[in-house]
Amino acid sequence: MERFKDTSSQPSRREIREARRRKGGGALEFLLILAISFALVFGVVRPFIVEAFYIPSESMEPTLQVNDRVLAAKFVYYFTTPERGDIVVFRSVENPDEDLIKRVIGLPGDTVAIQGGTLFVNGQPRQEPYVARGVGGFATFGPVTVPEGHYFMMGDNRSNSQDSRVFGPVPEENLIGDAFLRFWPPGRIGLI
Rank of each mutant, 00 (worst) to 15 (best):
P129M: 04
L107F: 00
V146E: 04
A139P: 06
V131R: 00
A72S: 05
E172Y: 09
P108M: 08
R20F: 09
D86V: 11
Q10V: 11
D110N: 13
N174S: 11
D99E: 13
T140I: 00
Y54F: 07
R17P: 01
S37M: 08
A132M: 15
F152K: 00
A52P: 15
G134R: 15
L31E: 07
F53V: 05
P96F: 11
P47C: 15
P96I: 14
E2P: 11
M154C: 07
G24A: 08
Q162L: 10
E94M: 11
E98I: 00
S164L: 05
F90I: 11
L181K: 07
P169I: 10
G85V: 00
F75R: 08
G168A: 08
P96M: 14
G109D: 12
Q65G: 03
F180G: 04
V50D: 13
V88H: 01
S159I: 05
W184G: 07
F183N: 10
V121N: 02
V121C: 03
V166F: 06
E51Y: 15
E51V: 14
R17K: 10
I87E: 07
P171S: 12
P125Y: 11
D163G: 14
P125G: 12
W184L: 09
K102R: 09
R188N: 14
T111A: 12
E51S: 15
F167Y: 11
F120A: 08
M153A: 03
E29M: 11
I87L: 07
L40I: 14
R133I: 08
V104G: 02
P96S: 10
F90Y: 11
P143I: 01
